[in-house]
Amino acid sequence: MPEMTKQRPKYLALHQIRLPLAGFVSILHRISGLGLFLMLPLLIWLLELSLGTTPEQKATFSNVTGSCIVQLILFGLCWAYLHHFCAGIRFLLLDVHVGIEKEQARKSAVGVLVISLGLTVLVAMKFLGVF
């Protein structure tokens, strides 16, 4: 089978490939998933502290969640969760053939980016006591 072994052209100049919006949502789905996985120990630890009953646990919880760096990480993780959630629902709908037309798929990709970012801003504002 000479056809099978023929060298095929590869074009993987990543800086020159223009990713469509749906592709952008897709790679962010992967990145947000990996980020959440890597930060799982922090999240489980915070869950433990948030449900803690001893004064030490309560003090550690307020100290940790009061730190600016931790807050920044948590807002990032909040975005990662919301993006993964919204993009995941979009993928589930695509799986059952809802919104697979090009224009609809582009619109839902924009929707995922806007909704997840918007909700992250809302959560961050609530957390920081803006409202």
């Binding site: 998933g33 990996l34 996985f37």
Partner: peptide, 9 residues
């Protein structure tokens, strides 16, 4: 879920 996703990566 994370096992399948991270394994795929």
């Amino acid at each position: 879920h994370a096992w399948i996703g991270v394994r795929d990566i």
